[in-house]
């Protein structure tokens, strides 16, 4: 049984429907990419899954439990974390405090100390800066902090909204290496990306979204001829 199963999801803001009938599923230790031009509803999709906005139709099952329409604070306790677009770390709080906030999403408080230690091991840079204001970190460090903060609740599924945004190429590689480690530990990871080639090579399956619905599904094999595909998928109207 897939860990996360999204079926015919419909969501939007107010009366405006941004995504219509999107379906996909993901299993433990796997990754799914989501690509598409700006404004097609990629972020809306992640927000709808994580509870940031309330979907108007379809179903979302996390490990067999229906989470559609639940509050974000409850969904995170059920094992799904979102790293939102633009990272959204608390720049006025210290790195330590940012990580501690991640603890609020844990089901029980046992193992809190270990969870933080584990993150510091996975992201050593956070350990060196733990007493600094999070706003003082570099973009790449902030992204690591945002991922670490989301992982502290030990989610079964991790959603990431444009983790490469504003980062230098070498830093992007570093972030994706961490993601590989996380996936290897059994977490299912969904990555929304603007850079199609990056995520298509990385993920087992990549959804191309256009005008609110899935236009096609790619595998890493498609990455090679992505250039020609990109023309047909993103070309017109861009």
């Amino acid at each position: 049984m897939p860990l996360l199963e999204v079926t015919d999801l419909i969501a939007g803001y107010g009366r405006v429907e941004v995504i219509s009938k999107i379906s996909f599923s993901i299993e433990a230790g796997k990754s799914v990419g989501i690509v598409g031009p700006n404004g097609v509803g990629k972020s809306t999709l992640l927000q709808a899954i994580a509870g940031g906005i309330s979907p108007s139709g379809g179903s979302i099952k996390l490990d067999g439990v229906d989470i559609k329409g639940k509050k974000p604070e409850d969904i995170v306790r059920l094992g799904l974390s979102l790293v939102p677009e633009g990272r959204q770390i608390f720049s006025g709080l210290s790195v330590k405090e940012n990580l501690a906030l991640g603890l609020t999403g844990r089901k029980d408080k046992k193992g809190s100390v270990e969870a933080i230690l584990k993150m510091k091991e996975l992201f050593p840079v956070l350990s060196t800066h733990e007493n600094h204001q999070a706003g003082m970190l570099s973009g790449g460090q902030q992204q690591q902090l945002a991922i670490a903060r989301a992982l502290i609740s030990e989610p079964k599924v991790l959603l990431l909204d444009e983790p490469s945004l504003g980062l230098a190429p070498t830093v992007i590689d570093d972030v994706f290496d961490r993601l590989k480690q996380i996936i290897a530990l059994g977490t299912a990871v969904v990555i929304v990306e603007q850079r199609a080639n990056l995520v298509t090579t990385f993920a087992e399956e990549t959804l191309v979204i256009r005008d609110g619905h899935v236009q096609s599904r790619l595998t890493p094999a498609d990455a090679a001829n992505l250039a020609s595909l990109e023309k047909s998928y993103f070309g017109a109207g861009e």
Binding site: A50, G51, G52, K71, P72, E73, V76, R77, S81, L82, P84, Q88, F90, L101, G102, T104, G105, R106, R149, A150, S153
Partner: peptide
């Protein structure tokens, strides 16, 4: 918004 995503009960 972000605080809720992390589990803060609104």
């Amino acid at each position: 918004r972000t605080a809720r995503l992390l589990g803060v009960r609104s």
